[in-house]
Design a protein around this nucleic acid. Structure first.
Lengths: 249, 249
DNA sequence: AGATAGATGTCGTCT
DNA sequence: AGACGACGTCTATCT
């Protein structure tokens, strides 16, 4: 059998089951009334309440309430789970180094504990990412602009790698920044850094950087931009090309 | 009793339990072998395997494998859960509008299904946040610099609200940007936008913005900065003050 | 509803 | 191990 499960166990019973599950490398879920405290990158305390504790064999720990996509407390993979009975109660502790942090869950009562040996696919096939957008442009550069010629992807610069580097119909260098969804001002800042770095690298002076024909162009490719982002694009004389990661149906 | 739990139920049994749990507003966990597909902001497919499905009464749905802090698939709060038996199998679907997205989990087999009525504390007391850092500085402005005087927090500007606005010992305006942990170049860009906005607002011309005494100063308060961030700070003639959100023990 | 910035963000990738 | 940027980021706050 792949699943073990106990209903309303004593704290000591719960401890045995937990230790066995850790030993087997099971994925564990514990329903119960507990308090939670965390100390590490920050520090937090959570009063008594019913929660779901998930313990993974890779060291991840998650404490979920009845609300939210995010766990109310957690510990990243690579941590170590320890269970014990202290003062007559089940205590589960998950710790890691670098940074030093500890998550402690103290159960007043355990309602349900289940453990399962996990097998099977872990590989997610995801479509619609920034990489899809890059592929799309490399296959059809004219989607960016007539005459646009990609020269390099992930081109290094002193400001980090730029998404796509190329030239336009006039052979002017072009830095393309890709975003898979609507963007705010931060993306323009990122593009500006790459353009500035490339200008420095090419030794462009302010003279040759004419009002109507910049020496290095910046193009932000994204489905859409916020008003503030549009302002900043105009300030910097960058262009925006509206494009989705995947063709509209 | 607050918890209901079934072991190796038939798909139809599982369906009844799920519908009851939705009705009661329970927090639900399902262990089983399933395939998962998502369609919405992106699209993804996940082949058969053992996973833990968590369904929350607020509409959140999480699919967890045995690895990682993040669910391999999910649906945010506000979604609607629907369960059905299709082709002899339990199918759980979670949908929402704006954006339109759907998560579908098809179970080949349900190993364990538990549901719990959740009561009790949801309020987390968290320490060590950016707000703690702000409080710390407002109580002891000299931690930033001798003579520093905070005047306003969240002061509005055309580039958005700045964390702390104040003046230094020479009555020069100071924009303070707070970060709770080590920062990269992006934080400097953010600070630069606020400083530029304030200069424009105050009508500072390049004349009065002397080499050694800027008309508006920028200070980045963070535990530490990366090399690249330090360069960009130097370029802009901004200062860095090393400070933690909470005093070191 | 959209916009903006924080987060114990997490996660992959590259140096 | 640190740095950097993407993410179906999520989440709170403000307009």
């Amino acid at each position: 059998m792949t699943v073990t499960s106990v209903h309303d166990p004593s704290h000591r019973e719960a401890l045995w089951e937990l230790e066995d599950a850790f030993e087997r490398g099971d994925l564990v879920s514990v329903f119960g009334r507990c308090t939670v405290s965390y100390e590490g990158r920050a520090a937090s305390d959570l009063g008594a309440g019913d929660r779901l504790l998930v313990l993974k064999p890779d060291g991840a720990a998650l404490v979920h309430t009845d609300e939210g996509r995010q766990p109310v407390n957690w510990q990243p993979p690579g941590s170590e789970h320890h269970a014990a009975v202290r003062e007559g109660r089940l205590r589960v502790r998950s710790t890691r180094d670098n940074p030093d942090e500890t998550l402690t869950v103290r159960f007043e009562r355990v309602h349900q504990l289940s453990a399962m040996a996990v097998t099977g696919g872990r590989d997610l096939e995801l479509h619609g990412s920034e990489e899809d957008l890059r592929t799309r442009i490399l296959e059809r550069p004219d989607l960016v602009e007539t005459g646009f010629e990609p020269r390099e992807t992930e081109r290094p610069s002193s400001a980090g790698p730029m998404d796509i580097f190329g030239v336009d119909a006039d052979d002017t260098p072009v830095v393309v920044e890709l975003k898979r969804r609507r963007v705010g001002p931060d993306a323009v800042g990122q593009l500006a850094r790459y353009v500035r770095a490339l200008k420095e690298e090419l030794g462009v002076d302010d003279e040759s950087d004419a009002e109507d024909a910049p020496a290095v162009r910046g193009i932000l490719v994204a489905p859409s931009v916020t008003d503030r982002a549009a302002e900043r694009l105009a300030d910097r004389r960058f262009d925006h090309v509206a494009l989705e990661p995947t063709p509209a149906e």
